[in-house]
């Protein structure tokens, strides 16, 4: 994958994909994959690199425990595909 596609940030962290413990509640964010257009904004702008692109370029929450609910991903999502599950 080229640098321009991921803008560097998402690749910075090695992919330590841990199993999410669902007894803590749902994943921090809800991603509507039918509305997502794979623009890569949430993946690149997330300061904690929570997302990883799947093979379509759409975000997958690879590191959900790192999410701090900083609101950057869903505030910058042009297609309203991300909502927060944080209560």
């Amino acid at each position: 994958m080229t640098d321009s596609k991921t803008a560097g940030d998402a690749q910075a962290k090695p992919g330590a994909k841990s199993k999410y413990d669902y007894s803590k509640g749902p994943l921090p964010l809800e991603i509507n994959l039918t509305w997502c257009k794979a623009c890569n904004l949430c993946i690149a702008l997330c300061p904690k690199q929570v997302f990883e692109p799947d093979r379509d370029g759409k975000p997958v929450q690879a590191r959900p425990d790192d999410c701090t609910q900083c609101t950057i991903c869903w505030v910058h999502c042009p297609d309203f595909a991300i909502t927060s599950n944080y209560k």
Partner: peptide
């Protein structure tokens, strides 16, 4: 119908 007509990543949605 969603998604919208704009290109992926367009600022209009923001």
């Amino acid at each position: 119908k969603f998604p919208s007509v704009w290109c992926p990543g367009c600022g209009n949605g923001i």
